[in-house]
């Protein structure tokens, strides 16, 4: 069997018109550059804003600085001209805009504004005064742009900027190398931020204000909450209280997300519960003399048991 569309057409699952169209795609008579162009645009923004940000530091006090500031200002104004030309009025629901690169334009302009702001700070030597506030300002700008122009990427950037402002670097991708959540104080902040983000997501849907923001809020909320708890276990003296908080909430969330069929959140909760439970178990066993025998069988038994459970209950999350 080598042609899906032909088979579907022959068995009368699709019409001839659909078949001809799909065949033209398969034979590469028409090629979509959708992902390619977006990737190029994205990498361009990444490099350009990154480069500009660094150039600002290098060129402070040199001849180029006024020029650079003017350039940034012009770019921002041009960007806003296009944004206002195509943007629709604010609405609680999902807003779709005709301009295909509107989302990218928003991100670029937001990052440039922050670049210009940084420049002004450094140029007028007010860094020290604004140091603790500049992250909040960046976060507010991201949040404002996210809500006004309906953009989830900016919302996610706003959340991470907020976390940075509160004192911890939020990089779950590299969380093993993450020493951002360091003091005892920040663990509690992380936990509180996690809870409030999760609740914000819940409220977004309940009050019907940008309900499609729910996933981003709750995803960051849960990750922040669990990372806060788990790093509390391993890096503070209050390991047992943190373990109990993590275990309790993760078990509760496991049941809740099982019921609401939120698969990804179910997994987060399961993993956190497993880590917390293992920690408790090891603490208990290490106090006994022959406990190490149990440890040999702990990982194979729990892992295989959990696999069997997940595979047996596969139909529960079938829609995923």
């Amino acid at each position: 069997m080598n042609n899906i569309y032909k088979l579907l057409f022959e068995q009368k699952h699709i019409t001839e018109k659909q078949f001809t169209f799909l065949e033209s795609i398969r034979k590469e008579e028409i090629i979509s550059l959708y992902y390619e162009l977006r990737t190029v645009l994205y990498i361009g923004i990444l490099l350009f804003t990154g480069g500009i940000g660094y150039l600002i530091y290098e060129n402070i006090g040199s001849l180029g600085h006024i020029l650079l500031m003017l350039l940034l200002g012009t770019l921002i104004i041009t960007g806003f001209y296009y944004i206002s030309k195509f943007a629709k009025p604010y609405a609680h629901d999902l807003v779709t805009v005709k301009l295909v690169y509107f989302d990218y334009l928003l991100i670029l302009v937001s990052l440039l504004i922050i670049g210009l702001f940084t420049y002004i700070q450094v140029y007028f030597e007010i860094v020290a005064i604004l140091a603790s506030w500049s992250s909040y300002l960046s976060a507010s700008l991201f949040f404002f742009m996210a809500y006004r122009y309906d953009n989830r990427a900016l919302l996610a950037m706003g959340i991470t900027a907020l976390a940075a402002a509160l004192g911890f670097t939020f990089t779950p991708i590299a969380w093993t190398a993450n020493d951002g959540v360091s003091t005892n104080y920040t663990h509690i902040i992380a936990i509180l931020l996690g809870v409030s983000l999760y609740v914000s997501g819940y409220l977004s849907e309940k009050e019907n204000i940008k309900p499609h923001f729910k996933f981003t809020y709750q995803n960051f909320g849960l990750i922040t909450f669990y990372l806060g708890c788990l790093s509390g276990i391993f890096y503070t003296a209050f390991d047992i209280p943190y373990t109990l908080v993590a275990l309790g909430s993760a078990v509760f969330m496991s049941f809740y997300t099982w019921k609401t069929k939120a698969f990804l959140f179910f997994l987060y909760s399961n993993i956190s519960a497993y880590i917390a439970f293992s920690y408790l178990f090891f603490e208990l066993v290490s106090n006994t003399s022959d406990g190490y025998i149990l440890l040999i069988y702990y990982f194979p038994c729990t892992c295989i048991g959990y696999i069997v459970f997940l595979v047996k209950k596969k139909s529960h999350f079938a829609h995923e």
Partner: peptide
């Protein structure tokens, strides 16, 4: 959105060096 937040430097503070990386 998640990838953007992890790569486009929303998570760094402007007072640090190389903030935009």
């Amino acid at each position: 959105a998640f990838i953007a937040s992890q790569t486009l430097g929303g998570n760094s503070t402007p007072t640090e060096d190389e903030s935009y990386f």
